[in-house]
Each structure stands twice: as structure tokens, then as C-alpha cells.
Design a binder for these strands. Structure first.
Lengths: 212, 212
DNA sequence: AATCAATATTGACGATTATTCATTTTTGCG
DNA sequence: CGCAAAAATGAATAATCGTCAATATTGATT
């Protein structure tokens, strides 16, 4: 995929797109398999079939590469969530579905689980990558009188950190899997709805995610 | 301080206490000055006046030493908070004061600020070190009908991650300092009170902290 | 006081890896 | 074809965590 020719694209540009994509793909495979820390730059370079130094022509550091991997994972998840929530009527339900799905994916998908260290980086990526959607949903739900969130950006930021922190705790067995619902309920409380409404929202049946 | 003799304590035990204390003190000085990452084990060992390998007789790893430093900082802050909130009547206010103080200290005290990387470690330390107090406050406030928190442990855990995440964002200038109040309001919302009550609680005048 | 097993200390060293950089290869253009 | 600029290369660098064999200290026992 993504090998489509772009008219007027020279060989350099084409090779660069190929290298960048190959590096991110290789890094994603290795990092999501053994963890970002355990993945070495040399192994990534070899898997992408480039020289060790070439990685640094595309990414200033290993962290920057790891960030690109994370953003890719989150982009994919965001697309899946969008596909499902497009049909929802209630904007509050869109938001609730989103955070529930992020939580379930972060704890359930082994690829996400391997990236769960360095939570500040992950929370930040989540904030940036899914922020536009989440903040839009918070605004809609507030406009519809469902939430009371005049500061959606801040609420979303706090939610990201809490969400990733909870995911980490669950992945480490410090929280039971059943806690997922309660986590969602409490995060919904931050939007300004009351506990009963948050509970109702969190317990609505959810359609399945399309696989990515 | 802490050089008090313990009756029947041999020289080994005395030296071990001295070494452990000296290592934590040295690590605290260096780590809070230049950050935990930039501090090297060798420099810490030299400042504590022990050999480079000796550190590993007391702490299995650099992370474990950093954790001890963090726990010390948090212990000190916890003592200060306790001294102030002892006189409060409203348990909800005790909780509100606690989280506000953690936030202000994390963003204002340069020693804390230097430790703000690796937020999952810090949030975990906060959860463990201040958890007994915070959870007690949440229970009291719930029993008094102020909060609705049947799951104080979970709410506290989520709050820790959100609190540290927000502190990090403020320290990096991604959030303005005035956001502190809103952060506290939204964290209070997680306890199950409504937005108006949370706002009132967050805006009550606060007595100053005794310096530690 | 002498002995000695147990324990603690030491610091040189090994091992690992992210990153750099001088060199080589490739590209695009006149 | 020839050449300058850009990109790729991978061997070398650098930095430091944690190990370990050797050494020093301790204190119970004789």
C-alpha cells in the first residue's frame, strides 16, 4: 500500500517515501512486539533494509521514531472509532464510546500494551492525535446540554493522562479488567454530568469495532 | 539529623544507615538539581562518599534509587499537608486542599519540577505515598454526603495520573498557570459532586503551607 | 588478643546501543 | 557525459549502567 505513483515525483522523492514508510513499518513491528525500549535502531534499520545511519536522515532520535509509531497506531484506531460513531445520534455517546474503546484497546491489544511505558509520551500523543475528535464531541455534547464542559481541551488532556495511567495499571494487574467500566464512568464525570448519567452512558451496549 | 544512636546497634548497622541516608540525600540533591536522568550513579556515589559499586548494595537500580528520592519528597509534602488540614472541618475541603497543594508544588517547586519526567513512576509514587490519606478523605467526604465515591481507590488512582500529567503540561508551558484551578475543579468532579459544588470547593481561600 | 567466617565495599571492566561523521553512492540537470 | 548536491552508509564514538573478583571490615568465638 501507499506505493501509488505521484506524477512528477522523482526517484529521490519516491525512495524517501519508501524509506520513511519502511522505517515506520519496521519500527512498528519490532517495537510493538518487544517494546520500544528493547527495540534497537540497528534491528529496525535492518528490517527496513537501510543502513544504520540512514534512520537519522528521517528521524532525529529513537524517541521521535517511537512517536511516529504511536501516532500510526492511534491514527488507525481513530479511523475505526470514527467509522462506528458516525451513526450515533447522541454526541455524549460518541465521546463515551471513544474513551471506552481507547481503554479497551490499550489494555487488550498486545501491540498497544507493548507501547504502554513512558505514559507521558503516550498520553501526549493521544491528546494530539485524537484531540480534534474528542474536543469536537465534548463541544457538541455541551451544546446539546448533555455535558457541562466549557474547557474541553483541559478535560480531554486530563482524561488522556488518566486513561493511559489506568491502562498501564490494568496491564500490570494492579486493576482488575472489570474496572474498565468504572474508569469510563469517572472520566465521564469530569465532563460535568452527574454520576447516574455517567453510569447510564457507560453501560449502554456498544457496537463492535471493525478490525484494523 | 537522624544520627541518633540506637542502643545495641553495631558498627555495620550504623554504617549502613549512614550510607543509605547519604545516598538518598546525595541522589536527592543531584536529581532534583539536574533531573533524575542526567544524574549519574557515579556522581551520586561520589557525593555520598562511597564507591561506585556500593550503590547497588542499597538499591537494585537507578530507578529504585530515584523512587526513594521521590518517596522522600512526597513524604515531606504529605506531612506539610497534614499539618494544615488537621484543623479543617469539611473532609471534602481536606481532599481539595491536598490535590491543589500537590499540583502547586509539582509545578512550583523546582525540585519537584526536575523529577517530572517519567510520569508513570511519579503518579505511582503519589498513589502509594499519599493514597492512605487521600482515600481516607474520600471515604469521609462520601460518608458525610459530600462526595459520591464508592471506589475511592480508583478515583484516587485516576486523579494521580491526571494530576501529574497536568503538572507536566504546565511545567512545559502547554497549560497556563491559571489552569490550576480548573484542573482541581475537574478532578473534584470525579468524586461525584456537581460542577458548581466543585467550583465552590476549589475557590475557597486556602491557608498557606508551612515550609518543609 | 587472635582467629576467621560472614558481610560489606570497591572500582576497574564488560556490554550494550544511540548517535555521529567521513566516505561512498545515487540523483538530476546542463 | 560530467558534475554538484543530496542521500545513504556503517564503522567508530561515546556514554554509562550494572557486574564481579578482589579487598577490607566486622564481631562472635576461642
Amino acid at each position: 500500500m501507499a506505493e501509488a505513483e505521484i506524477k512528477g515525483e522523482g526517484r529521490v522523492a519516491r525512495r524517501q517515501r519508501r524509506n520513511r514508510a519502511a522505517l515506520i513499518r519496521a519500527a512498528r513491528e519490532i517495537m510493538t512486539e518487544k517494546g520500544a525500549e528493547a527495540a534497537t535502531m540497528l534491528e529496525i534499520a535492518e528490517r527496513a533494509d537501510v543502513g544504520a545511519g540512514t534512520v537519522y536522515n528521517y528521524f532525529r532520535s529513537k524517541d521521535e521514531l517511537a512517536m511516529a509509531v504511536l501516532e500510526g497506531l492511534m491514527h488507525d484506531l481513530g479511523v475505526s472509532i470514527q467509522a462506528v460513531t458516525d451513526r450515533f445520534e447522541d454526541p455524549a455517546q460518541v465521546y463515551a464510546f471513544g474513551i471506552r474503546t481507547v481503554l479497551d484497546t490499550a489494555t487488550g491489544d498486545p501491540r498497544w500494551r507493548q507501547m504502554l511505558h513512558r505514559s507521558e509520551v503516550i498520553a501526549d500523543a493521544l491528546f494530539r492525535m485524537m484531540g480534534p475528535f474528542a474536543i469536537r464531541d465534548l463541544r457538541h455534547a455541551s451544546a446539546a446540554g448533555r455535558f457541562q464542559t466549557e474547557d474541553p481541551e483541559l478535560v480531554w488532556r486530563l482524561s488522556c493522562h488518566a486513561l493511559i495511567g489506568a491502562s498501564l495499571a490494568m496491564a500490570q494487574g494492579q486493576l482488575p479488567p472489570e474496572a474498565g467500566e468504572t474508569v469510563v464512568i469517572r472520566l465521564l464525570c469530569m465532563t460535568g454530568i452527574d454520576l447516574a448519567a455517567a453510569t447510564e452512558l457507560a453501560r449502554r451496549p456498544r457496537p463492535p469495532l471493525p478490525r484494523s
